[in-house]
Structures are given as structure tokens and as C-alpha cells.
Amino acid sequence: MWNEIRGLREGVDYGTPPRQGQPVTLTVDGVEVTVPEGSSVMLAAVEAGRAVPKLCATDMLESFGSCRVCLVEVEGRRGFPASCTLMVAPGMEVRTQSERLTQLRKGVMELYLSDFPEAEIADGWSEFHRTLDDIGIKTHGYGTGRVHFDLPVDDSNPYFLFDPAKCIVCSRCVRACEEVQGTFALTIQGRGFDSKVAASQDDPFMQSECVSCGACIQACPSHALVEKSLFSGGYERA
């Protein structure tokens, strides 16, 4: 129903919210597509049937530009802009696939993999796992290093749990809490490699400002925030 109201096809994630505006025509991988002014290149690519891999973007939330997986090439422009934060322009020629883009996307995914529990990769079915499949990478070459695997699981909430080991710090939960629910119960604590999703002042979820609305569970692409009902015998880290 929500998608109908917004004029989007059911079951398709356009990556960024729809816009209203004058029609703008551009090409994505040679496919001509027309979308409203103010739309992202990511949305236009989906419309053109040339969806770009993504992690931190989802059409329920404003674009954020943090995961750097949705990079594209634009004719006549240097570098590799993120398609979620790049606005469409008339006559723009976008490429979503090239050897260089694949190389960079694999490089970014390798960094995610270097801080993701190895045993959780093979059987996963989250958006993160699908993106790994799309880009075609399952291993990384960084060997051992600092990871977030020893942070404790927060299972204080009766309905869902948070496993920081599987968190990819895309901030989708934080943004959903703000933009969808208006509760502002979540934040990123710290900065850099130490960045960690925290409820209120790093409280257990049940003692925080969380109202158990479930928006963050919906938003999480890596099953770090996940419903307990999926684990009948109780949650165990792989």
C-alpha cells in the first residue's frame, strides 16, 4: 500500500525516495529513462532496469552516501560518484558496470568482509549477503586484524536482538528511527573504526528510548538487528 501511494512498484527497492518534479531524461547503460527532477541516479537506474548494487540506501530513507558500493561512472566527469547522492541531469550518460567499477566495489566489499564473522557468510540471506552475491565476492585478503566480534549481543528486547558483530554501520537503523518513526532513540557512538550503533546512551534496548516499533529491524540490511522469532532455539553466534 505504502509503495502504491508513493507511485513505486511493490517489491522493488528504488534506493532513494521518489521525487516530484519536471521530467528529466538521461541514459543508464545506454537505456533511455525519464524520471522527475531531483531523483537520484540510483532511482533512475532501477527505473531503467539497471539496478546498482547498494547497502546503505533504501527508498524509505533519504540518501546517505556511506557504503560506497553504488558507485557509477558518468560520461565527461572524473571519478566514481555514488549513485544514491548523485542527482539526475538532462542528457546525463551513466554507466553502472565496468571493470573499474567492479574492482572498486569488490574492494569496498572486501573491507566489509574483513569485519564480518566468516561463519555467517555462507548461509546468510540478508541484503548484505545478496549484495555479496551480486558483486561476486565472498572472501577478503586482509588476514587477521581488529574486528567487532567480541561486542556483546543485546537481547534485552523480547522481540528482537542486536548483534554488533554483524553490524556494517550503514546507519539505516539510526535513520529509520529518526526519519520513519521520529523516535531518535538510536545513534552512532564514537567515530571511525570504533563507530557503533547505540540505543540512547549505549543502554540495553529495553532501558533506552526505544519504543519497540520495529522500524530498525525492517531497515537493517545485514540481520544485525533481527527478530528473535527467526531463531526458535534461541540465538547463538555462529
Binding site: T187, G190, A198, Q201, E209
Partner: peptide, 21 residues
């Protein structure tokens, strides 16, 4: 943090996020 948050009409999470940054 709760006192600060209430005065600014922010959540504790928001204030904590800033302090810890």
C-alpha cells in the same frame, strides 16, 4: 545527558552521539 537532552528537545541518543564523537 537527560537534563541536556530535555532542555534541547533532543533525545539522549542524540546528545550521547555528539559527546562520544
Amino acid at each position: 545527558v537527560p537534563q541536556i537532552a530535555r532542555a534541547l528537545n533532543q533525545s539522549r541518543a542524540e546528545v550521547h552521539g555528539v559527546i562520544s564523537f
